[in-house]
């Protein structure tokens, strides 16, 4: 499992597109749902999951607690890891860094910012490789 993390429009997608091999791509920016990952993941391809902040916002809006969502995501990460091992393929998570500005005024945005930060820490811990993207340049953090 790989985590690609960086700010908005920092070139994260381009980095992933330059990796070799076939990819199955699930993007929240294309209104795709995270729960379909098993169906979308084609044979002999790596799975890319992009736009976590939108999926997490949807979860928050459903009224569930931050702790429950975090737990659910960690279960998902474990499932993804098991499946990539079974298939001998890779899962690539693309996540948006959004924790560096001022604290958001609105409660939902504060919750989302907190949750994405925690989920990113969890994802970084479970990933074998973590890459930070800065204006199109990359740095391997792990």
């Amino acid at each position: 499992m790989q985590l690609i993390i960086g700010g908005a429009f920092s070139g994260k997608r381009k980095i992933v597109k330059n990796l070799s091999g076939n990819v199955s791509w699930i993007s929240s920016y294309e209104q795709q749902s995270l729960s379909n990952w098993e169906k979308v993941w084609e044979i002999d391809s790596n799975l890319v999951l992009e736009g976590w902040e939108n999926w997490l916002r949807t979860e928050i809006q459903s009224g569930r607690s931050i702790a429950a969502i975090r737990q659910q995501m960690n279960t998902l990460f474990a499932e993804l890891k098991a499946e990539e091992k079974r298939r001998d393929q890779q899962v690539i998570l693309i996540m948006l860094e959004m924790g560096r500005g001022i604290v958001p005024l609105e409660e939902e945005n504060r919750q989302l910012r907190d949750l994405t930060g925690w989920i990113q820490q969890d994802a970084a811990e479970i990933s074998e490789k973590v890459i930070y993207v800065w204006h199109g340049l990359t740095r391997v953090m792990k």
């Binding site: 908005a8 920092s10 070139g11 948006l96 959004m98 924790g99 609105e106 204006h135």
Partner: peptide, 28 residues
């Protein structure tokens, strides 16, 4: 300035997003 790593990136007003997008294209 690195202005693309804050909360505004996803919850923000579209004019702000346009600006961050243009700035990042320039930076890249």
């Amino acid at each position: 300035n690195d202005v693309n790593e804050g909360e505004i990136a996803s919850g923000g007003h579209s004019a702000v997003l346009d600006y961050i997008y243009a700035l990042e294209r320039i930076h890249q």
